[in-house]
């Protein structure tokens, strides 16, 4: 009987039923925008790379929305998702606690500044390194005290005031509220950040998944993404 209950739980999670909600694996930076666009889907939010790993290991996803085209393209090459489509763009922002004395990006290189960035291989971390390299300020990386696995970890440590600064997406700034302030990154240092969405090949609800992607690329999706601070392709 207990085993039966377990089997029922497993089936429920797999979303096998006909009227099952769509399961969307989405980059953590989409945590506000996507549920605002489509509240009736189940969202699994995390680092794009770890979501890709979960899909590789057979997680039951219908749609994959990644913070980099690269991660979606890699799954495409393995035949795990359909052709990815760019649906949003983003920019980087340096956030500091609102009470911080840091006034510009150049101050990040001051000795003793506690900087938190994404780890290498995590999109927000790779973009941050590219931006610092473009500024000729890679020595700022000596001040890194933690390399986080997703953007949520970076925001949390700055909001709590434990870190002096973090490099995140512009779209993370508004949800963090009054606890943080933004230091402007020169436009020339901004890397091209493109988000890609793809239908998962093994999805049990292909039609609903395709409809979701089409709507996301259409006027409704564009309005929701813009409201959340994303750029549009």
């Amino acid at each position: 009987m207990l085993l039966g209950a377990l089997a029922a739980l497993a089936a429920g999670c797999g979303g096998a039923g006909g009227d099952a909600r769509l399961t969307v694996f989405a980059a953590a930076s989409l945590a506000e925008a996507l549920p605002a666009f489509e509240p009736d889907a189940t969202y699994q939010l995390g680092g794009s790379a770890s979501l890709a790993t979960q899909i590789r290991e057979g997680a039951a996803a219908d749609v994959f929305a990644a913070a980099s085209v690269e991660h979606a393209r890699a799954l495409r090459e393995e035949g795990l998702v359909e052709e990815p489509r760019v649906f949003a763009t983003n920019r980087l922002a340096v956030i500091v606690p609102s009470v911080s004395e840091l006034a510009s990006v150049a101050d990040l290189a001051r000795p003793g500044v506690k900087l938190v960035v994404g780890a290498e291989g995590v999109p927000v971390g790779d973009y941050a390194r590219a931006a610092l390299a473009a500024l000729g300020a890679s020595d700022v990386l000596d001040n890194v005290v933690s390399e986080e696995d997703d953007v949520g970890g970076i925001v949390a440590k700055v909001v709590l005031g434990e870190a002096d600064a973090g490099i995140v997406y512009v779209t993370n700034v508004a949800p963090a509220g009054a606890a943080v302030r933004v230091l402007e990154l020169p436009p020339a240092a901004q890397p091209a950040i493109e988000y890609a969405v793809a239908v998962v090949t093994d999805s049990d609800s292909r039609e609903a998944a395709e409809a979701f992607v089409d709507r996301l690329l259409g006027p409704e999706g564009r309005a929701a993404l813009e409201a959340a601070g994303f750029g549009l392709p």
Partner: peptide
């Protein structure tokens, strides 16, 4: 550990933290 100490190779990145970080890069 990941909440309180963060994760930095050679300083605060312990084996479990490293395993979690590698999930993103190389399973």
């Amino acid at each position: 550990t990941i909440m309180f100490a963060g994760s930095l190779q050679g300083r605060t990145q312990t084996l479990p933290l490293m395993i979690y970080a590698q999930l993103d890069r190389d399973f």
